[in-house]
Amino acid sequence: MPARISNYFLLRPYWLAIIISLLLILWMLSSPEAEPLQAEQHSIKEQILPKVQTTRFTPEKMTKSLTLYGKSEANSRAVIRAEVAGKIVAITTKKGLRVKRGQALLNIEKNELPFRLEQAQALLDERSLNYKAVKSLNDKGLQGRARLAEMKSLLLAARTDVEQLQLKLARTKVTAPFSGILQEQFAEKGDYLQVGDSVFSLENIDPIVIRGDATEHYVSQLTLGQSISATLLSGEVISGKITYIASMADSKSSTFRIEAEFANPELKIFSGISAKLSIPLYPVEAIYISPSALAMDGEGNLGVKLVEQGTVVFKAIKLVEADNNGAWLSGFAGEVDIITLGQGFVKPGDPVQAVAAEK
């Protein structure tokens, strides 16, 4: 009997295919076996969610500052020149020393100037007496007005000669026009000077001026007298005021020159050193975050990746300012959970398993 059944199906194989198909359909429609499979697949899906580390940040108040890099320079600088011709007979100071306004620097030979001054003074006395005599006669009607005018002109000419000689004699002693430090010395004792020859250069570095260049975006936010701080290479921070804002941009850099004065009574800050200027602009609420947590979306917007209800969300932000250790970001309404580890492996819309970082 079994042999006959076997021969029957061998002669008619389509029946065997029909029976196998019916058995497969019945197995697939069986719900008690499908439910464990779906549960197992869901469990596997939960297990493969990527893990990311998040840190909670709360915006805090800070001041947006403009940072400029510049150099220090003298508040005033002058090249002291000879105003009379003659030989240098004495130099009373030397370069590198601090001098006060009016202090003698060198003496130029007086030559015949004292004798010429004495002669001019005597002529002035004579003409003064002549003028007084003619004026007395003119007051009595015994002398004409023309003669009086002539005597007055001669008197004024004599007085002018005396004053000119006095000025030349005074200029044989070269003095400092303001307090400062002598930088360069261009002449030595025994040199013969012509009018206009350089003898010393003088710089005043109290207060010291530090200059920088601001872009057109920020220059309109600056005002004269505004507080400013400068960080020197030594790490010292000094405070000062803005004293100059250029009204015309540099043709090459399209920036505006800014100058600020800083007290330098001990003359410890020299001209020509580098400094970082910081100018407070306005208050803002921001968070301070490591640059490694920053990201960019497909359109090139700067932002961070957050986790909201288990899903990655990209949040565009505004960079307030940055330093070597991090960046201040604004644009947050309240507390946020920012992905600080693993953000490079997830994209917006991905479900993730967030793990809070230890405080």
Rank of each mutant, 00 (worst) to 15 (best):
E112S: 08
L97M: 12
I238V: 06
V52G: 03
T63P: 10
K359H: 13
K135Q: 00
I245Q: 08
S43W: 12
L222C: 02
L267C: 10
Y282H: 09
Y282R: 15
S153V: 07
D337W: 08
E203P: 08
Q221N: 10
I88Q: 04
K110T: 13
G70T: 03
S330F: 08
L129V: 09
M296S: 12
N7I: 05
K189V: 00
A176I: 00
T67W: 05
E83W: 10
H42M: 15
F9P: 02
R257L: 11
P351V: 04
V355Y: 10
K61F: 08
I289S: 02
A293D: 03
V199Q: 01
S43F: 15
G225L: 09
A327V: 14
S278Q: 13
I205N: 07
M248V: 15
S274W: 08
S220P: 12
R147H: 12
R12E: 06
K61Q: 13
S31T: 14
L319M: 07
L165F: 04
A354Q: 13
Q164C: 06
A120C: 00
L182V: 02
A357D: 10
P348S: 03
M151R: 04
P207F: 11
S128F: 04
K87G: 10
G349M: 11
S330A: 09
L24G: 11
E118D: 07
E321D: 07
L233G: 05
K152H: 00
Y288W: 07
H42R: 15
V195R: 06
R101T: 11
V313R: 00
A78W: 12
A322E: 09
K87H: 12
R116V: 01
E40S: 12
E150Q: 11
R12I: 13
N264T: 06
S251I: 15
V312Y: 04
E188R: 09
E266D: 15
E126K: 14
R4Q: 12
E261A: 11
E216W: 09
T172F: 03
E216S: 11
T255D: 01
V304E: 00
V312P: 05
I88Y: 02
I181C: 04
A133P: 00
T58W: 09
N107D: 11
A170N: 03
K152P: 05
V313K: 07
Q343R: 14
N138S: 12
E358V: 14
